[in-house]
Design a binder for these strands. Structure first.
Lengths: 225, 225
DNA sequence: CAACCCAAATCTGTTGGACAGGTTATAGCT
DNA sequence: AGCTATAACCTGTCCAACAGATTTGGGTTG
């Protein structure tokens, strides 16, 4: 497989520095040149690591001044540890159950006509994929995303995206098991989604939340009987 | 303010290429040298953009072969657009309201004694910070995190962390307004958290969820009267 | 002594060229 | 046509350098 890149090493090294040196939020960390020297790599590598750290919200670079700690990774990363050791659990489904049901309720209440059209379009894409018996992960996910977007609250999308890769893994694993996908399953999945979309269209908040909860519940049952 | 870096431009440009050229998942995108030429920047800049794209799960680099589309950003980024235009909203509070109340309920049910000790320790840190009149963002957040961790479901932590930076921004802005922090506010915050922790300790699921919901509701009111 | 200003040192942002090592495609041979 | 070896291509990494922003320290002045 693709062996680890040096920038991964630099990334971990910088995190280690922040943790071990107990740098407070706002503290300046060593200059790029110094970090490069410490890790025995070039400055370009350190920069790639810093770009990722900044993208992760851990550091922040100020031109001419240096790079600064924006939020401490400390226990944040430690808490992630157990997850990587776990097999693909259905834990993310539990969070979806909570999050998406509520997002669905809010979407029904607040949706604009433009957002509704966006949702309908997503539904159409999913229908097409399911009826042509193609793999429909992407379309399924996309429809759920558009519903979350229809809340008008981007924070729902942030949380949704954070769970995405994990959910995708679970779904893919589930499909590998029952690759054939009998027609009644297709019909059921289609109907469940259509009920959700219809409730949002009708601005039926409770109905939408209930339909989403039912859909996720059944989906989990299908994956793990 | 910190003006936009060239790598931001390259990042957006590459996303645009993936979207406009309708590159499927798995498609190879132009080589780094070619992209550099297209955007009129050096290869190092393109690499920094690609590192971020890879970190965002959009592309994947294979040594010697090229960079490939891993998941299409399409509407994903478009849906984020409005957020960057918004001022710091309280949208993330809405999601916390949903997410943390449920996490709190599950934590009360499932907590192990070790997780409970972790929560108690977080509570102690918060109490100390509040009573010494120090800024207590970090401790507040940490306690909430440990409660989420006590569900035993890492997916809650994933969602929590995704919202973190946004919530932090809102809280910091709120504190700037009322920098003095009168003693009755401190006492209230302390009491609210203590009620939550006590409910989790007593494994009172409904009480824990209710206490968390109340706490977040009041917190939002304090920030935006 | 304090406050202010300017210059030097420091730091990130960016460029160009270069080489190593892996992957893909092509040309040539059988 | 099928196989193989080689050439072309690509990412990963390094080095040396300069531009532009910021911090720092010293010197001057009130």
């Amino acid at each position: 497989m693709n062996q680890a890149r040096l920038s991964d090493h630099a990334y971990a090294g910088i995190v280690e520095i922040i943790k071990s040196k107990d740098l407070e939020v706002g503290a300046r960390l060593p200059s790029e040149a110094r970090l490069a020297e410490m890790f025995g790599v070039s400055r370009a590598i350190v920069r790639e690591a810093l770009v990722r750290l900044a993208s992760d919200g851990i550091t922040e670079a100020r031109r001419g001044a240096g790079s600064f700690v924006k939020s401490r990774p400390s226990d944040r990363l430690a808490a992630f540890m157990p997850m990587s050791e776990l097999p693909a659990t259905l834990g993310s489904y539990e969070v979806r159950f909570v999050l998406e049901a509520e997002a669905c309720r809010l979407a029904a209440i607040r949706r604009t006509s433009m957002e509704m059209a966006h949702v309908e379009e997503g539904m159409e894409m999913l229908r097409e994929a399911l009826l042509s018996n193609a793999p429909a992960h992407a379309e399924d996910m996309e429809l759920h995303r558009r519903i979350a977007a229809a809340t008008g609250n981007p924070a729902f999308l942030i949380a949704f995206d954070a769970l995405w890769s994990d959910v995708e893994k679970v779904m893919r694993a589930g499909v590998d098991i029952s690759r054939s996908r009998p027609p009644e399953v297709i019909a059921t999945m289609l109907r469940e989604h259509e009920v959700i979309v219809a409730a949002i269209r009708a601005q039926d908040a409770e109905g939408a939340a209930l339909a989403m909860r039912w859909h996720l519940w059944e989906g989990r049952r299908r994956l793990m009987p």
